[in-house]
Simulated assay, not measured.
Amino acid sequence: MKLPVYAATAFSAAISLALTFVPASGLGYHNGAVQIDVTESGGYYILSDPLRPGISCGINGTTPAKGPVGTTIGTGRRHDTVTACVDVLYGVQRMWDMLRDWLGRNGINGSGRGAPARIVTGTSVPGSTVDFPGSQSFPTQLDLVGHQYGHVVYQTTPGGAGAGNENGGINEGSADIFGTLTEWYANSHVDRPDYVIGEGSDLIGGGPLRHTYNPGLDGHPNCYSAQIPATEVHAASGPMRHWFYLLAEGSVPGGGKPSSPICAGGPASVTGIGLVKAGRVFMQSLLRKTSGWRYVHVRTASVMSAIELYGPADPACVTVKAAWDAVSVPAQPAEPACAPPPAR
């Protein structure tokens, strides 16, 4: 996905008429019948979120889309732009709530604000919006909305977006992690949660864009190597999303979840700590990010974060290290040690 350019400014839709905050019925192409939080004004539902500042969805611009009061917003058809906005608004509202409930973050940018989305039917000009370009279909599935807004989270944590392909790969992998977390939080019966990104997408002929549990299925590296800094950013994200799956679910999770490979020299197996706990470690790691972040720095930050959140004797500490070993990111001299678990 194209990395949106985001400026941390105060986004708001200027609506001068009397406002009423309401939940409204929407019909998305990817999510089906949903309830979304909108603003009621002048006989219209305005797709500007009254509860989550800065969140709105417009068509080829920042003016929010709208629909008549008392009707269902959107048609459910894949080419309809208002329908695409319904999917976006539903997805980012679930992501906002996930960040609050699971990860303890205040809004998309960490300061209680978000960014407006645009459904773009022509040329997308970089700006202060999160863009979803298309023509006959739009990339507005839950995990892709979480992915695109995940870039905003990444860019509004310390160090910003950074530069270089390795940093870009970490950014893309982080966005996929946020997309995955959003999909699991929403737990939609229409788009069941999983560990693939953009399944059912029309972008590459109906198949998933990326696999978290096995990036090799996409032709992307499962393991870190000296080639990563020269690898295209989506491919360079392979070790990042692979690490997260191993941390959350482990190498052989069972329960219908797919097994995940371990790179040469890694541990025989990895036992996951659970998705929410893994997400908390990951989010805390981003708060240690610098503009020059590389995979070895993410490893050290995540070990420190696991210890900070859960203590050195918690299984999270050992599993964070094991998951990095399993994707060939080596330990660093500054990496803190885990403590033995307490005797029973």
Rank of each mutant, 00 (worst) to 15 (best):
L99F: 04
Q141N: 01
I170S: 01
P312G: 03
P193V: 06
I197M: 07
G200P: 09
R299N: 12
T182R: 02
C338F: 01
V252G: 15
G265Y: 15
Y154K: 07
G266S: 06
M304Y: 12
R78C: 04
V22S: 13
G127V: 03
P68D: 02
A18E: 15
S135P: 00
V125R: 00
K277A: 08
S305A: 14
T71H: 01
T300M: 14
G162I: 03
E232R: 01
I273A: 06
P315N: 05
N167C: 11
G169M: 04
P158H: 08
A301Y: 12
R78F: 09
R113M: 05
A337K: 13
P215S: 10
V233I: 09
K321S: 12
W293T: 15
G150L: 11
V69D: 11
T212D: 00
A226H: 02
G311F: 14
Q155A: 13
F138L: 12
A339Y: 03
D80C: 15
T83L: 05
Y295H: 12
A268S: 06
L144M: 04
S25P: 03
D143H: 02
A236R: 11
P50C: 11
I46F: 13
M240H: 11
P116M: 05
N167S: 14
P261G: 14
G110R: 13
T129Y: 01
G256D: 06
T290A: 08
D218Q: 07
E183M: 14
M240W: 08
K289V: 01
D176V: 05
V296L: 15
G160E: 14
P261M: 03
V92W: 15
A343S: 09
P4H: 05
T319E: 09
A306T: 02
